[in-house]
Structure formats: structure tokens, C-alpha cells
Computed example of a mutant assay.
Amino acid sequence: MPVDFERYHPSDLPDEDTNGRQILEFLAGHPELGFRASELAEELDIPRGSVGTTLRRLEQRGLVRHKGTYWAINVEAYDAHTASEIGLQTVADQFNGDYYGQNPNWDSDLPYFDAEQADE
């Protein structure tokens, strides 16, 4: 699907339903704590080998940081924009399957107003 190239801003977040997203959301829920990779693997039921690789990728994006063997969310990088993306996805997940989700053409009969009409 084509996008408006000037308005398109790809997300810094990993795609949903990925190990990276799970780890990032978990760490964001505990911003003051650091976790070992083994603790994250156990807590999130992700294979231990995948956690280390995923954490390094998240670190390259600046989303997590580590001290020794402990990993934490990079609060500075995890700004309001990133938080709002997760919040919007949570809302979308919550209302998935509602009337609007089941009726993709719900807006087809709405009147169209362009910018010039709005100024009148």
C-alpha cells in the first residue's frame, strides 16, 4: 500500500507480536528496574538465546540500555511518541472486532468536506 512519503514516519518500535515488542513493553512497565536476560526469558516465555539477540538489536536502536548483565528501558528514548504508539495499539486491540472493525466501509456514506469547504 502506498503512503504519503512526506507524512510517513516509520516507528522506532519493533513490530507487534515480536520478541522485541514484548521485551520493550515489559521493560517500559518497570522503568526503574534492570533485568538479566535470563529473567526476561523466564518472565516472557521467550527462548533465552532470542532474548540476548533481541536486546542487542533494541540497544542499537537506542531503546534499551544495560549495565553489566542488567537491561532496562532507555527512558530518554522511550518518549511520548513511542508511548502513544503503544497506547494507540492497545486501544486498537481492545476495540478490534467492534462495529467499525466488522464494517470496513462504514464511512462510505459520509459527506466529503475538503479544506475549501471548511473555510466557508
Rank of each mutant, 00 (worst) to 15 (best):
P14H: 10
D93E: 08
V91L: 13
G29E: 11
D4F: 05
Q89K: 11
Q89D: 12
A92T: 07
P10L: 12
Q89W: 14
A28G: 02
E6C: 03
G49K: 06
H66R: 12
E39V: 07
D114M: 08
E85F: 02
E116K: 15
V91K: 07
Y100E: 11
H81P: 03
P111V: 03
H66T: 03
G34K: 06
Y8A: 13
A37K: 08
L40K: 09
F5P: 10
A80L: 12
Y100Q: 05
P47M: 04
P104L: 14
T18E: 05
L24W: 00
D17E: 14
L24T: 01
D109N: 13
E120N: 11
G29R: 05
E42M: 08
H81G: 07
Y112R: 05
T18P: 05
L44C: 09
Q60I: 01
E76Y: 07
E120V: 08
Y8P: 04
N74D: 14
T53I: 15
S11C: 09
Y70C: 03
R57A: 15
N96W: 08
E116W: 10
R65S: 12
E32H: 14
A115L: 13
L58K: 07
L24I: 03
W106G: 02
E32F: 07
A77T: 13
E59R: 15
L33K: 13
V75G: 15
L63T: 01
R65D: 05
Q117S: 13
G29M: 01
V64E: 02
E42T: 10
G29S: 02
L88N: 11
L58Q: 10
F5N: 15
V64H: 00
G62Q: 03
N19P: 02
N105I: 12
A115P: 04
P47R: 13
